[in-house]
């Protein structure tokens, strides 16, 4: 018996199983009223109706090209920027309705880590002082000795020795700084980590060290990850499920292996075929090279946002005026009218 076709909102698993539920998330930034550029006047529709869920302990990868809204989505989910519309629930609690106090508790449980850890580490605090501050602010780790033990434990957990306690951020390599960033996020014992391009600033040989660390920590601490990245191979490697974004919308989401093996949305197909494989000879076989650039999120095209670049728009469907829903048989959903017809 197969699941019926449904839109993603209809197909959410029961709330009791979910750590995070995001429905119809919208974030519009007001446009500039004056000045040059295509942005003059209109609103930037950075995120335009995004729905997804996260089960406890799983990893969802959010991928897409620059400007697709993946970073804005990650921040809006934590209310680091106020969503324009939509419903966000963390363990069933309405995140958008939280007052200051509830929000503070929420942000202990849901942390974000950025691409460049150096930019988010205070250069004038030693590692020990930085972590101590985090613990004191959130009243964790008990007294001075307790905090000191906890800090040593945190450093060890991320593969740094306690000899690093009295060093400053500039004394660390890129990979070590990313480990420090992880240690600081873990200090408050979060359940959800939003990882925004967690390794893209690192050298290839060091990236793998951090990826393995994140995987170990997830297994040990049963963390839930929302990974935002442009590196499709990395996302495939780290994610249980993947959501592909284009112009502020999710165009396809599915379990990672299925998405990469049998993508249904033409954009996903093009995106995956464009990944350069470290395998000479395989090269450009089967590559779909898209024409043109991503349209501006200020004035997205009418209908399907992908239709002006779509290599095979539907013949009997009006891709230019109808906006496709994200629908399919759980857990694989795609927003394509042509695909929906062939379903």
């Amino acid at each position: 018996m197969s699941e019926p076709v449904a839109s993603i909102e209809e197909a959410f698993p029961p709330s009791s199983d979910l750590l995070l539920e995001v429905r119809g998330l919208v974030k519009h930034f007001p446009g500039r009223s004056r000045g040059i550029g295509r942005g003059a006047g209109g609103h930037v529709r950075a995120v335009d109706g995004v729905s997804f869920w996260l089960q406890r302990g799983e990893t969802l990868g959010l991928v897409g090209e620059s400007g697709c809204g993946k970073t804005t989505t990650g921040r809006a989910v934590l209310r680091l920027i106020e969503p324009t519309a939509g419903d966000i629930r963390f363990r069933g609690q309405d995140v958008c309705a939280m007052d200051h106090r509830a929000l503070r508790a929420f942000r202990r449980q849901a942390q974000i880590m950025f691409q460049d850890p150096f930019g988010s580490l205070n250069p004038r605090l030693t590692v020990g002082a930085m972590l101590d501050e985090v613990l004191r602010v959130h009243r964790l780790g008990g007294d001075r000795d307790g905090r000191r033990r906890r800090i040593a434990e945190l450093l060890e957990r991320v593969g740094l020795g306690s000899e690093h306690l009295d060093r400053y951020p500039h004394e660390f390599s890129g990979g070590q700084r990313q480990r420090l960033g992880i240690a600081r996020s873990l200090a408050v014992e979060p359940e959800l980590l939003v990882l925004d391009e967690p390794v893209s600033a690192l050298d290839v040989s060091v990236q793998a060290q951090v990826v393995n660390l994140l995987e170990d920590l997830q297994a040990e601490l049963r963390l839930t990850y929302l990974i935002i990245a442009h590196d499709l191979s990395l996302v495939e490697h780290m994610s249980d499920r993947v959501a592909v974004m284009y112009l502020g919308r999710i165009v396809e989401t599915a379990p990672a292996a299925e998405l990469y093996r049998a993508p249904r949305h033409p954009y996903t197909r093009a995106l995956l075929s464009a990944i350069p494989r470290p395998d000479p000879g395989v090269g450009r076989v089967g590559r779909i090279v898209l024409v043109g650039d991503v349209p501006s999120p200020v004035s997205p095209p009418a209908g399907c946002p992908f239709h002006p670049r779509c290599p095979h728009p539907g013949k009997d469907v009006d891709c230019g005026s109808l906006v496709p829903d994200l629908e399919g048989k759980a857990p694989h959903f795609a927003a394509c009218l042509k695909e929906a017809m062939s379903e």
Binding site: G175, D203, S205, V206, A208, N212, S233, E236, A257, P278
Partner: peptide, 24 residues
């Protein structure tokens, strides 16, 4: 050899990455 083993690849999905220890 280490560089090639440290990048995620479709044909080795599910396997753990094998980083090069240390730094440049």
């Amino acid at each position: 050899e280490g560089l090639l083993a440290s990048i995620p690849r479709a044909d080795r999905s599910g396997e753990r990455l094998r980083p090069i220890p240390g730094v440049v």
